[in-house]
Nucleic acid binder design. Structure first.
Lengths: 188, 188
DNA sequence: TCAAACAAACCGTCTGGTCGGTACAGAAAG
DNA sequence: CTTTCTGTACCGACCAGACGGTTTGTTTGA
């Protein structure tokens, strides 16, 4: 794959991600993606022969980004649970790492993709299932799951814009979750 | 409005709710709703002149059901936070009340409707915003919000079917959330 | 008998996908 | 060096089906 081709592909994935985050799945049409990326629909379908191929590529890129960040957080000494919490707020806690440019809100937005296609959704589901399985092996599985659910619920409410609390409260919530995650990791 | 008309309307709302919960928003088409309800599309559009009208009616019915259940729970002596938690599990905690037939998983499924239409979504959002505003006035707003987010995240993961834990763990999670909600209500 | 409650064919738009063609960079041939 | 050829990247008109909604006609119950 040439460099030029790869650049265009990334542009298309960026455009699709942008649309799904800011305008929702229902706006994720091939025409819209092509237009946003500054490419013709023909050009889009040259690189991704179907809408599903485009969505699959989107999910795979996100997965890869997340796995890399999660691994790097664990290498910094954070336990599995705390690393997971920090995964959700990394770009806000460490703005200097904005280069990594991962926002887990993407994941929530991407979850809505599950509504559209079942085929590839199952693959992602399987990965998430195995990932969350380890959360049931910690010192306090109940608390661990509460932390996980709280983060997901928070991101969801953020994505849909319902009942969003002021920033200070959000930061306090994250802080407390990190605290508890740290305790759980220590006990485990 | 005659009785016959109302029966059909409820059948249509039931069908739409069923589809959105079991097959997702993208399958919520007028043809599908009509077919599921055993009515022709013409019949559907006789009662609900547009898809948005149908969705609005769906949301309004759900809101009403929830408000009634929430009020009844508070009348039984539960504080606002604990009542909210029990709202999420009422049908499972009290199967004998299955007549009420409210499952808050519906709400999560309905959230995906936000992706489709912004118009009526805002109305619902406003109601949710004012509802959740009181959660920031409790003795421990941080913990209260964690409880709320955890419940929403749990229902969401249930709806999308990602990383769903075994039943016992789920019950333990709910139990602990009820415990904490109770404490918060007592302190408030 | 009359209006409410449907049924069914039909229409316009949107959308995923196809297809023939173009621009261009480099290799091969002369 | 010029010409020809080839494959990659891309464009844009077009198509078929799906979907929301309209219209017209039919049944049903008071």
């Amino acid at each position: 794959m040439s460099n030029r081709s790869n650049v265009t592909k990334q542009k298309l994935l960026d455009a699709a991600t942008d649309i799904i985050m800011n305008h929702g799945v229902h706006q994720l049409t091939l025409d819209e993606v092509a237009k946003t990326a500054g490419v013709s629909k023909g050009g889009l379908l040259y690189h991704y022969p179907s809408k599903e191929a485009l969505m699959t590529a989107m999910v795979e890129r996100l997965q890869q980004e997340q796995n890399e960040l999660y691994a790097s957080l664990q290498q910094e000494g954070y336990g599995p649970v705390e690393a997971f919490v920090r995964l959700f707020d990394e770009t806000k806690l460490h703005p200097e790492r904005a280069a990594i440019q991962i926002d887990v809100e993407k994941m929530i937005a991407f979850l809505t993709l599950f509504e559209v296609d079942q085929e590839y959704a199952n693959r992602w589901k399987h990965d998430l299932d195995t990932f969350f399985a380890q959360f049931q092996q910690t010192a306090d599985p109940v608390e661990t799951m509460i932390i996980r659910y709280a983060l997901e619920g928070m991101m969801m409410s953020e994505h849909f814009g319902v009942g969003v609390p002021p920033t200070e409260l959000k930061q306090a919530i994250i802080a407390r979750l990190i605290e508890r995650a740290h305790d759980i990791d220590c006990e485990s």
